[in-house]
């Protein structure tokens, strides 16, 4: 199939790609653009490792066609820290040791940033439920909850 031009706005930068329509946003990021912070864990919407923001909302890059994301604003983990300053959620993850192998971590952090923004970080129970779409096999969950709680409190104060 012929490739089509796809213009992507990622972390405030404009990218022009020629892609087959079947290329997912995830594979465009990882294999075409070298933005490998977004991880592939299952490729079927079952793990959350590929979580990115599109127009400020958390979504899965593995089930999004790159072409679909044209005209939207995409943020990946690489675009979260501003001018070298860690995002408060990133800092909280480090402080709370909310990860081990680090592979699910970019997805957890992108999900956590959105979770707080959505107003779904009001209690530990709510955080657990609204972070349940990001699997972590190392088992950092209690520390992830602590990190999200801490960052949410920082935002609130």
């Amino acid at each position: 199939m012929t490739k089509i031009p796809v213009h992507l706005d990622i972390n405030g930068q404009h990218h022009e790609l020629q892609l087959e329509p079947r290329v997912t946003l995830l594979d465009a990021l990882r294999e075409r653009l070298g933005l490998t912070g977004t991880k592939k864990g299952c490729d079927h919407g079952q793990c959350g490792a590929c979580t990115v923001h599109i127009d400020g909302e958390r979504v899965l890059a593995c089930l999004t066609l790159a072409a679909q994301a044209e005209g939207r604003s995409i943020t990946t983990i690489e675009g979260l820290a501003r001018e070298g300053e860690l995002h408060p959620v990133q800092a909280a993850f480090l402080e709370q040791d909310a990860f081990q192998c680090g592979y699910c971590t970019p997805g957890q952090i992108m999900s956590a940033v959105a979770c707080i923004r959505e107003g779904h970080a009001g209690s530990d129970e709510e955080i657990r439920e609204y972070m349940a779409g990001n699997l972590c096999r190392c088992g950092a969950y209690p520390h992830i909850v602590a990190a999200v709680r801490q960052a949410a409190q920082e935002f609130a104060s």
Binding site: G45, G48, T51, V59, L60, T64, S111, C115, E129, N134
Partner: peptide, 12 residues
């Protein structure tokens, strides 16, 4: 709705 899938999937 909120008990379906995950927050990410529900946003899509």
């Amino acid at each position: 709705l909120w008990q379906a899938a995950s927050a990410q999937i529900r946003n899509m």
